[in-house]
């Protein structure tokens, strides 16, 4: 186990160096963020580097108890599965798009998944993880986007927050990772990236699903809008 631990520390260092990631707490200039012992981390999604980087920035003592949620249709087979579950401790779920293809999917919109309700079975695995005292890393957009925008959130984040109302929901904005390794590319191009850990959110007692998801999404969208370094199109 000791060897595996060292490998994981080395890998974490390698990932943050390679992605040039500067990690800071919200509103500070490079000050290290606090990581609660248990949390539901959610972030904007534009690259395979997203979950890898989020995993890598976790403090050593918390890292084994953080479970990134990854899509079974991409990560669920062969060597990718061994890497995702064996090293990054990922929990694989079947994505909504596994359902039979409908004409709605073909519509040219970035919001095909918006407002969709994840199947209950998807969430059971995640709520089990929360009940066991572990943390989650989820990407509520459901799929990778172009990097400069945040798509509408799926409902899972709200359901998880409702399931464990005392667990802080921590927004994390990832900047530039989508420019290092965008969707559809195999070779990363070196750039410096930024990880901003925001103040935790808690779902209000009478807060509606829509309100909470909009509030959570706005944290990331506002942070991305302040971006000054380069732009993607």
């Amino acid at each position: 186990m000791k060897v595996m631990h060292l490998i994981k520390r080395g890998l974490s260092g390698l990932i943050t160096t390679a992605s040039g990631a500067r990690i800071s707490a919200e509103g500070t200039d490079g000050q290290a963020p606090d990581f609660p012992s248990q949390a539901i981390y959610f972030a904007n999604h534009s690259s395979h580097l997203d979950f890898v980087t989020l995993w890598a920035i976790m403090p050593a003592e918390l890292q084994p108890k953080v479970r990134p949620i990854a899509a079974a249709d991409y990560w669920g087979s062969g060597i990718k599965q061994s890497v995702a579950t064996g090293i990054f401790n990922a929990h694989l779920v079947h994505r909504y798009k596994d359902r039979p293809h409908t004409t709605i999917d073909a519509r040219p919109t970035r919001q095909t998944d918006s407002g969709s309700s994840p199947k209950t079975s998807q969430l059971t695995g995640m709520t089990d993880i929360l009940d066991a005292g572990d943390s989650l890393i989820i990407f509520p957009e459901g799929t990778r986007g172009p990097g400069d925008q945040v798509a509408t959130f799926q409902a899972g984040l709200y359901r998880l927050a409702k399931h464990s109302p005392d667990v802080p929901v921590v927004p994390v904005t990832l900047k530039n990772l989508g420019r290092i390794l965008p969707k559809g590319e195999a070779i990363p191009v070196p750039r410096l990236s930024q990880v901003i850990v925001h103040n935790p959110l808690f779902v209000g007692d009478d807060e509606s699903q829509e309100d909470f998801l909009a509030r959570a999404r706005r944290v990331l969208a506002d942070e991305l809008a302040t971006e000054t370094e380069g732009e993607t199109a």
Binding site: G20, E185, V189, P190, E229, G230, E231, T232, A233
Partner: peptide
Amino acid sequence: SFLALREFLTIAPTHRSDHKTLVWLVY
């Protein structure tokens, strides 16, 4: 040179479609 390119590409507003050109540029 590699580190300088990384800094330059961080602030250069390249497009998503430039990615494969940048792979040549960098590596």
